[in-house]
Design a binder for these strands. Structure first.
Lengths: 320, 320
DNA sequence: CGCCCGATGGCAACCGGTTGCAGGAACCTT
DNA sequence: AAGGTTCCTGCAACCGGTTGCCATCGGGCG
């Protein structure tokens, strides 16, 4: 049995309210009394029960973090950063994986609602309408999704796409394949938007595709056949699948085709050729989302974080 | 303001205790009353407050999961599986990352203690003594660590190492390098134990090493110089680093040296050559750990899960 | 020397549920 | 018809803290 506030009160002959105040409003208790209480508490190994406290204060010091797929290497850095930042603010984090299923996502949010001060929604699959409805019960911060009036942390995909296209253009590529992700993905739309408005390029679109290596593998043949000398892929996983598919057809990267991914996940860094990619600020996003949630005074604040092009080995000069 | 039990009680003219029983002991309430209560609850969007419930019942329906490094690709599958299994049991999971720091780990456990029904410790860095002491306050299940009397989920590294060595021997390799991990790592010890007792092999040990690509990269030259035709690496990350280092010296894998890793993480599957590795049953371990925790009747039960050799492309016949 | 005030700490209600106990009603038994 | 069950529901205490209110006490001030 862990020590409760009563045990401490009894141990040093004061009322429980005094013990309570020693922890939550120290300035209201006499220094002498305070140190007696602290000594007794330390002696008994007392720690305030956060859940009980939450009952009256309304603050749980917990938050939820909901992601589509923990095993997708894009998410762990975000989770790690958010969790670390939260710990620094004395918060604990419930992490839940929806398996890409909106219904699971909704149910998860509902059961979490009472138990947290807010929820970080990372690339949510729910409809905007549903998110807005759920937001009436618990504060949200969105990551990688924009809904008007809701605080969000966005990654500047458009800027990254622009950098990537400039890089390819600079290497002499003209005909470029755009391998997009799932239908209606925000990232895909951003990429296509930028590409469409970039002059002097001859673009070929492929999509929708699964956002995985399998997706990349599946379109490799089409990409090879379309005559493009470079590819901008939806994410690193797709890019890696693509490279593998091209290799199977004996098409060398970057010698014959250049490939750029998005995200900068670990497997891309380890791949050979090392993947040129647009790095998403995952760590900063996780941190920022936590801050946004906790200072929620800034209702609806939207932060956009810059991306960066990381040139490695999967891009090279266009062959003439 | 979310609806409370009182709102529901008022709405359908019964006492709160009746509402409470409708949810936690339905057989004690008249079917007619029950359906009225349920209707009212549904109408108001009422959901019991789990934290408040925990206060009296002592069960929080939360558990903690503590890992050394979320961003290490070995852990996400475990986290994902544990979390999914927990959700199936109506549990929520706090996930925390210790950054490999035992003090953070201890503090985390302490603050989590009151808020969970148990904690899953995944590859903990704390001393056994400390873990035993903390176990007095909250039930643990260990993953990848054995402490007498404590429930644990282990992965059969020895068996995997045996399979790997047999595979290499079968390919004609005799002189084999063993690239271990950090000092005192349980996995390293198991591997070395098996290797030492395998007859007919000429073993060269390298260690301790960082359990990362950097670690593999760093020993690549030594490994190449020692004349071994095959390497058993501490984990996939080390193996990948090793392959990269060998490639830099123009030593081909598997043509000149065969490499086997441990874990079966995603980057290994995507690498070229695709990594031959001993797959750790991460998903099963995550699930099993949750089950062990919840049925904790089986005090101290230890489950050992089998590993499997996955032969891909990084191993081949020894060259003569 | 009396008054006012700030500092201190006890009291008790409350947060949202749970549960042992008791009482009333309906239903059986004999 | 009396007494005993069983079923259902209300009452109230309790889980571990928090907090508004009030009483007490000592001291400073006029």
């Amino acid at each position: 049995m862990a020590a409760t506030i009563k045990d401490v009160a009894r141990a040093c002959g004061v009322h429980v309210s005094t013990v309570s105040r020693t922890f939550s409003a120290p300035h209201l208790v006499n220094p002498a009394t305070r140190s007696r209480v602290l000594a007794a508490a330390d002696d008994l190994g007392y720690r305030p029960n956060r859940a009980a406290r939450a009952l009256t204060t309304g603050r749980t010091f917990n938050m939820g973090l909901i992601v589509a797929d923990i095993a997708n290497p894009f998410f762990p850095p975000i989770i790690k950063a958010a969790q670390a930042q939260a710990r620094g603010r004395d918060y604990h984090v419930f992490v839940a994986d929806t398996d890409e299923d909106p219904r699971v996502e909704e149910e998860l949010i509902r059961t979490l609602t009472k138990q947290v001060d807010g929820v970080l929604l990372c690339s949510p699959r729910l409809s905007s309408k549903m998110i807005e409805r759920l937001a009436e019960d618990v504060p949200f911060v969105l990551i990688n999704r924009r809904i008007k009036g809701m605080p969000a942390v966005l990654m500047n995909v458009a800027q990254g796409a622009r950098l990537a296209l400039e890089h390819l253009a600079g290497l002499g590529h003209r005909r470029i394949a755009l391998v997009s992700g799932p239908l209606g993905s925000w990232t895909s739309n951003e990429m296509q938007g930028v590409a469409a408005e970039t002059p002097g390029l001859d673009l070929v679109f492929f999509g929708p595709n699964q956002p995985t290596e399998a997706g990349g593998l599946a379109v490799a043949a089409d990409v090879a056949a379309c005559g493009a000398s470079a590819v901008l892929a939806y994410n690193d996983l797709v890019a890696l699948g693509l490279i593998e598919g091209l290799a199977a057809m004996d098409i060398g990267v970057p010698d014959q085709i250049s490939v750029i991914g998005f995200d900068d996940i670990l497997p891309g860094r380890l791949n050979r050729p090392k993947l040129t990619t647009v790095a998403m600020p995952a760590v900063a996003a996780g941190r920022m989302a936590v801050d946004l949630l906790l200072q929620s005074g800034g209702e609806g604040a939207t932060v956009t974080l810059d991306t960066a092009l990381i040139v490695r080995e999967s891009t090279g000069r266009a062959q003439r």
